[in-house]
Design a binder for these strands. Structure first.
Lengths: 152, 152
DNA sequence: TCAGTATACGACCAATTATGTCGGCGTTTC
DNA sequence: GAAACGCCGACATAATTGGTCGTATACTGA
């Protein structure tokens, strides 16, 4: 149904939370989980995935926790989603390992691959900073240079 | 994981198949299912959904089957997906009936709603005709006027 | 008018995926 | 060395998807 998993949502929320608090050294998984009322252990695993993907730095021990490994501006929503849910393809027949098993099948996937790329492009053009900024100023948002065109 | 269901894929494939054969009066679910090697009964249900949504016309009895109810150019991929998978939202907290249950949650969903609209726009700009046409001419495809911009 | 071919629809089951939990281990700080 | 933390893999459970079955209904043509 073309939607993000909750894990990806949680991940984005957590990064946004961190981006909004640039002064703090690190926040524990529990801190963030409590802030949003989401399962702490589940969020912990998600943050670990993001750490492995290089989006977060982690620090064990007391007063440890997680912090962004880069500027919020330099982390895209795409990276987060990709790190958590893996590479996404809009088509079911992902054409990865074995492609479509059925012979003449999926004459559909080639045009839809373009759509897939377009969506990925949009997601890549959105940074965590964008998500964090948008909160307060009800005024004009800024134009993301995601003027994607689509050639079929 | 942000992908179409197989049902939606099947639906698109079937409509494309019909679009490629404008001369035929009607094709049965079985004909189309056999052409792609997909379960006939499943495809039948999908085609019924599309019929209910007004994208297809059906006719029972011998030499019956399904036909496009409009020009292939006038049927968008969005309509097909919507008819089969229902309204899609990129965010898990759909903000529909009850929205996010958690109090300050999903401060994320508002910016992502824009992304959602963007994707929907792209899908709306693609017609079944686009899918069908693309097949043979290896030459230049045409530019779909889906120059979507995204203001956060 | 009857046999054959088709759609229509609901109930159901099976497979997959998503979500969440548990327990044990390694690290750092106080 | 104990408390607070991250790290990891194995489960368990819930939800969704994919697919099947049975039956009813509609239309066609001989």
């Amino acid at each position: 149904m073309l939607k993000l998993t909750k894990k990806a949502d949680y991940g984005l929320m957590a990064l946004k939370y961190l981006a909004e608090r640039p002064e703090t050294v690190a926040l524990s998984a529990k801190d963030i989980a409590d802030a949003y009322g989401i399962p702490a252990q589940l969020l912990a695993k998600i943050l670990q995935q993001l750490t492995r993907a290089g989006l977060l730095r982690s620090h064990a021990g007391m007063n440890g926790g997680y912090a962004l490994s880069r500027e919020a501006r330099e982390i895209s929503a795409y990276e987060v989603i990709h790190a958590i849910d893996g590479p996404f393809f809009i088509t079911s027949c992902t054409k990865g390992a074995k492609g479509c098993e059925l012979t003449p099948s999926c004459t559909i996937k080639e045009p839809l691959a373009r759509v897939n790329d377009t969506i990925a492009g949009v997601l890549k053009s959105i940074s965590i900073q964008d998500l964090a900024e948008h909160e307060h100023p009800h005024g004009r948002g800024h134009e993301v240079n995601a003027l994607v065109s689509l050639t079929l």
